[in-house]
Design a protein around this nucleic acid. Sequence first.
DNA 1: AAAGAGTCCAACCGCGACCAG
DNA 2: CCTGGTCGCGGTTGGACTCTT
Length: 192
Amino acid sequence: MALTKAEKLRPTKNKFNRGAWTAEEDRKLVEAVEIHGPKRWKTIATTTGLNRCGKSCRLRWMNYLRPNIKRGSMSDQEEDLILKLHKLLGNRWSLIAGRLPGRTDNEIKNYWKSHLSKKIEKSNEGISRKQEDSMSEEPMGEKIDTAKSNATGPSEDSKNRIDLDDFFDFSNENPSTLEWVSKFVAFGGVDN
DNA sequence: AAAGAGTCCAACCGCGACCAG
DNA sequence: CCTGGTCGCGGTTGGACTCTT
């Protein structure tokens, strides 16, 4: 078997190992997470003998080794969802990722930059300058945050209170459904 | 076939939030 | 309350891969 991409990219220097992870490092990390759980990254980093910092271990786990990670290209539905959620939230990649089971914030961020931002750019080329000027640059997420921060006191009108945590409590919802996003976007966010 | 340009993606960095002592 | 340690997030980088000429 040929060398993996990770094996070809050996880390070079410094106190901690850096650069791409090898299969052996992955195996050790998975073992450590099984023992300590996906939380104690400092402990995991020091006990495994990987010579990686906790941050690096966490990132590797979250983006690559975690169970149920979905690899491969995005489906149309996923792409649509990302577009809508980005319109809603702006660059809150972790929140968007939370809505896409098996996808990581890093993956979505990369996908957005390499695919979707260009797509949007192209589609906006057809829009006249005047229309662009009248369009709000602010993602709806900002509106949500504004609504949230403006409604902190108990005396505030509870109708206007939007809590992102509550808003994104998806525990009882089919993660693949786009209906609520579509409705929300069509509705114009919390401003209406 | 080779070179250069463009794209993709894993990993790093800096910063802020959170929490225990 | 303050401080240091740790974690999580978003932005950025760099190298491999793919496409184009």
